[in-house]
Design a protein around this nucleic acid. Sequence first.
DNA 1: TGAAATGTTGGGGCG
DNA 2: ACGCCCCAACATTTC
Length: 477
Amino acid sequence: MSCAIVWFRGDLRLADNPALSAACAEHSQVLPLYIHSPQEAAPWRPGAASRWWLHHSLAALNERFHAKGGSLHIRHGDALSVLRQLAQATRAEAVYWNRQYEPAAIARDTRIKEALRLEGIHVHSKPGNLWREPWQVATKVGEPYRVFTPFWRSLRTDLDGSPPLPVAQAAQWLRLDGGLPLSALELLPRIRWDTGFGQLWKPGESGANELLEVFCDDALSSYAKARDLPARHGTSRLSPHLHFGEITPRQIRAALLRHADRRDSRNRPDPEPYLRELGWREFAHHLLYHFPTSTQEDFNPNFAGLRWAEIGEDQLARWQSGRTGVPLVDAGMRELWHTGWMHNRVRMVAASFLTKNLRVHWQSGARWFWDTLVDADLANNTLGWQWVAGTGADAAPYFRIFNPVTQSQKFDPDGVYLRRWLPELADVPTRVLHEPWADPACLRRTGYPSPMVDLAASRQAALAAYSELRRVREVPD
DNA sequence: TGAAATGTTGGGGCG
DNA sequence: ACGCCCCAACATTTC
């Protein structure tokens, strides 16, 4: 009886799981293991919303194993020590895992792989959560891509068309005493701000697959247009499921293509716009892998001289809690707080407001998103914030400053989204709703704050700071 | 996956 | 019928 340990990390699923499938194929006994070791992810330990999701996703995974006569073995602490100890206790010959690509994870896995191999334990690390491994995509001269469009052109012609792996089944799932109950990980918040989350989200593999089906049936055909409207459920909202590896890009692509084929030829949904968004996810992982310092540093060194505003905690708190006085920004920040998620267009607007109108360093925003998003993902978060701030590799030019009023007029013309998240403004006529300060009586009556900055003036100030930066760079002292 | 300023065009009202 | 003005709609430029 040969035994293997499958170490679950960012791949909380049974289907299309290369590590799990390989372990089941090559060994008769398989121990599914989760080790909680947030300190090993420093300085990006999972935030509060992420931990909420993790708790429920682990519970769902554990249930899946129970249904199969197994159990997810849960431990806490230093991953290498736990693996060593369990390998000894089970006489496991091998450890399997699917790769992660964050710098801290790569360093940890490299160290653990070497240590285990020295002790005679086979280690199999598998690709699982990306279409292509980051080192498999390169320019003609072998460099990593820095611009999305050529990256996507290269990637999309080169996608693996093989079908996703079926749900893995071991000859025998190994059950072991000494594991922790899930509650011992203390992932759920002490102050229960998460009360609304359960209504919205169903963490876990089956939740992910249900959501994918709903998306293919209801939203895919109108995705290209509807994805920009925050009032609608026009996006897939698969991002947290993807982050925790409850579903893979390969499964999603297979479902999309299957769906596009099934329809009659006249009204065939085009999967391309959505696949392109998954391409951005791949691009983010590609960049983080090749440029691991980009979580802490501006990708583009030209911005090193940019002076960011030093704002007080109370000012930052206004942005965080959705009391800036700018409706679309506030609606987004409140959606984030109440649901652990924010519509992508609104993320761009809220981030543009923080970095350009308030001129707060993008890291402050990235930190808040990291702590409050259920889909917080180091690669995506870093790319997104650097993109908005203009400091990124393939970023929005610095002068591209969103006007939150224009944006809500354009993408939430009837104010449905604004009213949903700003109940104090629910009765305000739509024209005023987009810019309540235009009607001082409205502010007095509703108690909604006046904007913490003048949009036009702060835009001008940001543009001035940019041209100053350029002047300094072109004429060095 | 910008916004605002500036430039151009063309239709309609009007003397 | 014509020129003129106005202005909306669209295009281009600039940040």
